[in-house]
């Protein structure tokens, strides 16, 4: 999609290369707590700055604004509002998706930040900014402590 090549570079002189970087990204103090709560208790946690009062979702160890250390944890619930969304018709390789994916930033009342995730149980044409949604967690046995332990967010009645 983002490439418009009329000549295939593979047919010309080149040397093929392949990088295979592998990492184990450390979740950190805030990340570990966040994902453990999602995995074990199906809870979404934020971290509160005692100086400015902002509740960060996802939680961080520090406040972006005040540079304070955040030590107070807050359960922010599993219901939120669609702040913005898109319908993606292409997959991660730029190929056309059979079924488009809906991505959204979901904000939680009284908090700062939110969660970027997929929406489910809704037709793309019915999604609106401001729509109320709720996290749908995978069954406990399938949860691994990642953001994908939330399967998607689905619309709810207010």
């Amino acid at each position: 999609m983002s490439r418009e090549i009329s000549t295939c570079p593979l047919r010309l002189r080149h040397y093929p290369g392949h990088l295979e970087p592998e990492y184990a990204y450390t979740l950190g103090i805030a990340g570990e707590r966040f994902f453990r709560e999602i995995k074990e208790n199906a809870r979404i946690m934020g971290a509160k700055c005692k100086k400015c009062g902002k509740i960060y979702v996802p939680p961080k160890l520090y406040c972006e604004e005040c540079f304070e250390k955040l030590e107070e944890w807050v359960d922010v619930g599993t219901k939120g509002t669609v702040y913005t969304f898109t319908i993606s018709f292409l997959d991660e390789h730029g190929e056309k998706l059979e079924k488009p994916e809906i991505y959204a930033l979901i904000k939680f009342k009284g908090t700062y930040g939110g969660i970027v995730h997929r929406l489910g149980e809704v037709k793309p044409e019915n999604v609106r900014i401001g729509m109320k949604v709720q996290a749908v967690f995978k069954p406990l046995t399938e949860r691994k402590g990642t953001i994908n332990d939330i399967a998607y967010f689905k619309p709810i009645m207010e």
């Binding site: 490439r3 990204y25 913005t84 993606s88 997959d91 991660e92 390789h93 991505y103 930033l105 953001i147």
Partner: peptide
């Protein structure tokens, strides 16, 4: 190309969602 751009996403909170990285542009435009 898409894979390289995906590699610029937060590896813990965002990258595991997968998908084409330009979904962020769609969300921002909206």
């Amino acid at each position: 190309y898409e894979g390289i751009v995906n590699f610029a996403f937060d590896p813990i909170f965002n990258r595991p969602l997968g998908g084409h990285p330009y979904y962020v542009a769609g969300m921002e435009m909206n």
